[in-house]
């Protein structure tokens, strides 16, 4: 099966810090900690290029590179393509119906003040792919 690998930037992006202002596709502004599953779904519906895909966490393991990193393996979309992502352990993913989750929620809360739960195998995360333009 096809497998691709992505490495996240070594530092956390500023928009995950509690209080960051996020603009939805319809122009509405929300704080990052207030985002709901529907906000992502509705924004993707408006978008002409992006669509939401379900990415199920299949495996989480420590990185060989550094103890600060984890490798998360996802099964993406209806074709269940395998994608591995190497991220900082505090990097938050948005889980459908649940909210922000990371491999180390204590660190996420400590560094970003972002309320966060533990990312676990079986969680279904929101991810993006390109819409098929025909």
């Amino acid at each position: 099966s096809p497998q691709s690998s992505t490495v996240a930037p070594p530092s956390l992006p500023p928009y995950f810090i509690k209080g960051s202002i996020i603009q939805l596709a319809d122009g509405e502004l929300k704080r990052v900690e207030d985002l709901k599953t529907e906000d992502f779904i509705q924004s993707a519906e408006i978008s002409s290029e992006l669509k939401i895909d379900s990415s199920t966490v299949e495996r989480i393991e420590g990185s060989h590179t550094s103890p600060n990193f984890a490798v998360v393996q996802f099964s993406v979309g209806e074709h269940r393509a395998q994608v591995s992502v190497e991220v900082l352990v505090e990097y938050p993913f948005f889980v459908f119906g649940q909210g922000w989750s990371s491999c180390c929620p204590d660190r996420t809360t400590q560094l970003l003040e972002l309320p966060c739960t533990k990312l676990s195998v079986g969680d279904v995360c929101i991810s993006l792919t390109l819409k098929n333009l025909r």
Binding site: P2, Q3, S4, T6, A8, P13, P14, Y15, F16, S20, I21, I22, Q23, L24, A25, L29, V32, L35, D39, F40, S43, S47, L50, I52, D53, S55, F74, V76, G77, H79, A81, V83, V85, F93, F94, C125, I126, S127, L128, T129, L130
Partner: peptide, 25 residues
């Protein structure tokens, strides 16, 4: 008069990982 500092606004899609699976058509 002191103008309020502009607060950065981030687009919603920057918060979502872009996981594009390899597709075979």
């Amino acid at each position: 008069n002191v103008e309020p500092r502009s607060v950065p606004v981030f687009p919603w899609h920057s918060l979502v990982p872009f996981l594009a699976p390899t597709q075979s058509d």
